[in-house]
Amino acid sequence: MSEERAIAALERSGIDFTVTRHGRVSSLVEAAAARGVDPGAVIKTLVVRRGEDDYLFVLVPGGRAISWPKLRALLGVNRMSMPDAATAKDVTGYERGTITPFGATRAWPVVVDGTISGTVSIGAGAHGVAAMVDAADLVTALGAQVAEVTEPE
């Protein structure tokens, strides 16, 4: 059901995308190999809690992690956190490892790291399902804010 919701949202967005399907993977390198892309083109969708019932999606390329000081400065907040798995599912409709802004149960704001470019692979609502999209189209479709909010892992 989650995969269908994500793909329907991608279709409604009007951007060009190609769905890739593969078995479960246990690492970034495995995901990249299964999708036929470099690890840096695999986009992780992270859910971040700003406050009470206030979340956002942060899109992070493979091999990078959120820089909390950069993200806090961008958003003008002092504290942020990552919700536990149950809360992340409650606020997005997706379980960890499948989260995507496309088809989420709430349209939380999206921040896309400024290092993301070219063709990228973003999760599509189920384990082993992803969408290949152009990064600029992704930003436009999501109405995302672009800012450098990551650092190398």
Rank of each mutant, 00 (worst) to 15 (best):
A9F: 02
T87R: 14
P69K: 07
T87C: 11
M80G: 08
R21L: 12
T150I: 01
S2D: 15
T105F: 02
G143D: 07
R24E: 12
G143F: 06
T140M: 03
A141T: 06
R49A: 14
S26N: 13
P152I: 05
L138S: 02
T98M: 15
W108M: 09
R35W: 04
G97C: 12
G123S: 15
S121Q: 07
A141L: 06
Y55I: 01
M82A: 15
Y55C: 05
V91S: 11
P83F: 08
D53C: 02
S26C: 02
G76C: 11
G23Y: 09
V47L: 11
A130P: 01
A73K: 15
V58I: 01
A88Y: 12
Q145Y: 02
K70Q: 13
H127Q: 09
V29T: 12
A65E: 15
T119K: 10
I116F: 01
L56F: 10
H22V: 05
V77R: 05
V110P: 02
T105C: 11
T92F: 09
P109T: 13
R64G: 03
D137R: 01
G123N: 15
D137G: 13
R21Y: 00
T105E: 10
V146W: 01
T140G: 09
T45V: 05
R35Y: 00
G93V: 11
F57P: 04
V91N: 12
A31L: 04
V47H: 04
L10F: 11
A8C: 00
T45P: 05
Y94F: 15
F102P: 05
A124N: 00
V146N: 00
W108A: 08
G93R: 12
S13Q: 05
A136N: 10
R50N: 05
T119S: 08
T150V: 08
M80T: 12
V112P: 06
A135T: 08
G114S: 06
L59E: 07
T20S: 13
G62A: 07
K44G: 01
V129K: 03
S26T: 12
R35T: 09
G128V: 08
G76W: 03
K89T: 14
V29K: 10
A86K: 14
A65P: 01
T115K: 14
G118H: 10
G36Y: 07
L46M: 14
G123H: 12
S2H: 13
E30R: 02
L71A: 09
V146R: 04
D90E: 15
I7E: 08
A144C: 02
L28H: 03
I99M: 14
D137F: 00
D38G: 07
A141C: 05
T20Y: 06
A31N: 09
G62E: 06
T150R: 00
V29P: 01
D38L: 12
